[in-house]
Design a protein around this nucleic acid. Structure first.
Lengths: 196, 196, 196, 196
DNA sequence: CGGTAAGCGAGACGGTACGTCTTGTCTTATT
DNA sequence: AATAAGACAAGACGTACCGTCTCGCTTACCG
């Protein structure tokens, strides 16, 4: 009989190389932004061969996405203050706090990739945006349960909230700070304010 | 008497070359998107020397922006239906109609450039986004005049509306069609619906 | 035990590319002369990437010199007729025979490079001229052994002989044919003719 | 009747521009050598328009040759010491004295041009080399008159003498100093030494 | 004195080569 | 089988010169 759990033949994949690559990609994106995230730079910093990168990831976008899943996931806690307005403001303030300049550079890098090619857009959407949307979706779901919000509105509101974030980020339209967080949550919550 | 209009010395700039370059850049962006808009490709298609392009524009982004100002200006008419909801829906539907696939490719190209470098973001913001924001701003201004909308809300609503557009566009989150137009305008207008 | 011969790491240099580059450079110089020997032309004809050329040779002069060492080495046989006059005439006639138009174009190309930059002059001197000087030097050495020639004269005579060759070649002063070969060898040998 | 000397119509050629161009070309060749003598550089330094240069000279070689005729002509005096050996040594020493580094750079520039294109070689030959050859030719002629030298030898000796000069110069084979001058004149004179 | 004609500066233009950079593939020996 | 090392083809980058061109202005003469 064969080996117990069908362990693959040959040299096993190097965990050290994998981590070095992910770390290098994330660092480069954080430190210097979209223009500096090149495969050559990743390979250089990770002290790894190009072949190894291309064997496991088809493009730098894939590397960066996995790096974010590995290291970057500072999950935003889902608040429960009892009202949509309160939950939303708490969520947005937490989001704004997370958006320090290195993080902004990473997000801009992702956006540049996504804008360049639809297939990369799909990857970013499914492997990165989805998580953020799910978190905010939960907040909206709580509001639906409380009867504050109709289900059909929740979906478009996701676009409005995250859209304003990316729009300001990509085109450098203004700070993504506490004021911005409050303004956006105020505007969204106003749609659903109880009529007197 | 002074000289008439101080015509600059030397051979005058070739209008033919200028147009060929702008047209080539816009065509390439429309046909094949961000990845195919290279200086070499522009030069090839415009049958122009590289020197001539770099003499007048520092980067392809600048070329594309001028091309849009030259050819792409399909101004969206500013509607006046008497209510914010009506105006907004009309504006968004017209916007959706304008967003055919070639136009979407151009916008994604702009977004890719803007996301890569802040200085390009500034250019895109000031020379392209500004006009669109001004148009929608006028719609909101009319609503302010009618007492339907507070001035401070108008500004954040601009971000929400355009943000949702670019967000869906860049990350390929769904069609930018009439349904989308109605959903967004409905959501925004709901914030300002008269309380009973 | 140590490694066998310390074979360098990585993909080995492509012999095919190397030969194609050298061949292309030599052909271009032979066919069309100094003006046509450009890196772009070499790259085009060799169907090779620019990177590959610049990885191994810092300039076209270096390429051409290696090409000559690889393919162009039609060594001129060192004659031994028993007298300086006879040896010299034989050597010069063989040299004249070798100087067909393509070869002349190659030599003019080398001269153009050498005249442009001292560092290139040094390369040409050490990697190309040296061999020719050594050959004629041997002829003179034989004469010294026979007592026909003083050692100190041999050195300056090298300059006189090759100088007249390059001088005529570069400035297109006349054919480098059998007559020329006989005239030069006659003049040089006359210096050393036994006094009656 | 027509005008007296058939003065051409239109604005007369600017002597100031002509001199500025010639001076700029010569200076650049003297200061920085072959690589730096570009039409653009000449035009820049002469504060003159390209058109003006190309109107009067078809190439930089032509400019440089005329510049040498205008400014550079330090004629080497033709000595008459009573013997070929003496005359030749005097001539060569004067030549060596004239070959300071800037002058060497100019000559290398001429050689680079001549080696690149036969038509330029012809120009250099007829408009520059000819004068030098004529001067040395006169020295040899004197020797022929004195019966020291056969006429048919004079021609090939010209090549040997000047050839050694250019050969050493182009390929940077050694100094062109008094020692060299004496060695060459000694070797040439030895051919014609009276047999005992 | 006004007209005619060439020279001139300024500088834009199409073209081509330069040398560098990045991408994604490949070919080795080693582990 | 995975790795490191690194060569390779492809092709874009931005710069530099080349030689040509198109202007408006200047400087002569000529009638």
């Amino acid at each position: 009989m064969a080996s117990r759990a069908s362990r693959p033949l040959g040299r096993p994949r190097s965990e050290r190389a994998r981590q070095a690559i992910l770390r290098a990609a994330l660092e480069l994106a954080r430190e210097r932004g979209a223009g500096a995230l090149t495969m050559d730079a990743v390979v250089r910093r990770a002290a790894v061969s190009k072949e190894t990168v291309y064997r496991w990831w088809p493009s730098k976008t894939h590397v960066l996405l996995e790096a974010l899943a590995e290291f970057g996931e500072r999950a935003i806690p889902i608040p429960d203050t009892g009202s949509l307005g309160g939950d939303l403001r708490a969520f947005m303030r937490a989001t704004a706090r997370a958006l320090d300049p290195p993080t902004q550079r990473v997000l801009r890098t992702l956006a540049a990739e996504a804008a360049t090619e639809k297939s990369l857009a799909a990857k970013v959407r499914d492997q990165f945006l989805a998580r953020r949307r799910a978190a905010l979706g939960t907040v909206f779901q709580q509001a639906v349960s409380r009867g504050e919000l109709s289900p059909e509105r929740a979906h478009i509101d996701l676009d409005l909230v995250f859209g304003s974030l990316w729009y300001r980020l990509i085109f450098d339209l203004g700070p993504l700070d506490r004021n911005w967080a409050d303004a956006v949550s105020g505007a969204i919550a106003a749609q659903h304010a109880p009529r007197s």
